[in-house]
Amino acid sequence: MVKEKKKAADIEKEPKKMEKAASSANEISDAGRRNFIKAMGIIAVGAGLALTLRGVVQSIIPPSVGISGFPTLTLVDQSGNPIHTSSLKVNDPAIVAFNYPLQNEPNFLLRLGDSSNNDVAIPGGVSVSNPGGSSYASLAGQGPYKSVVASSAICQHLGCEPPNIRFYPPSSSTFPGLIECNCHGSQYDPYKGFGVVKSPTQFALPSVVISWDSATDTYQVSNMIGPTIHGHSSDLTGGTPLTSTSSTAIYNVT
């Protein structure tokens, strides 16, 4: 213990000894000058660090990718032929999805029905429950029975994607007529503009604007309304553009 104290005392003396040596070697050194040189040194190091840091930060942020406007695309099947109403099943238990407007933005395509699988006309114009943002009017269903709707398939809570998040038909016993995400239990109502039924999600699923051409019985998507798609700073950035500029293909998620 005594020895340690002695050592410690030596260490304390050390800088003072150095000071003495310095002042005897160079008589003009005093505290003011020393501190000035120190301060200049710190400023120079700061400038160097700032330059380096700027370079590192700028180089590490990737350039953003995306597109400049919402394209109008025809919904097609895997072989590229436009889909018709008959190719969509009412309350399809399989997950039917398409990507829009970017490749990593999957959307549900639903043909909604009641518990005996008859088409249900979706009126539109309902105020959508969107607690985290402002509410907005829902879109009307499309197609001959006004029952086809589409929304982003990325959960607005933490970004889980199908099959973790999926639509449960009205005949299901677990979440009848709801879109539920099994990551943290968020629920949305596709019959009322994909509004929030149960938190933790604070935002409705963004709706895809669909139009139906009665002459050819084909469907086109042309815009998104509601909150921004989860995980994107805007719907149009943060992903690879789709390969085709005229169509987007529907696919099943298992």
Binding site: P62, P63, H157, L158, G231, S233, G238
Partner: peptide, 25 residues
Amino acid sequence: SIGSTIAGGFPYLGNVLISIFFGNG
């Protein structure tokens, strides 16, 4: 997706953090 959502909640810098750690999409 959960990690990037958490990072994205960072005030003001959320989107920058997402792009630094998880890329541009």
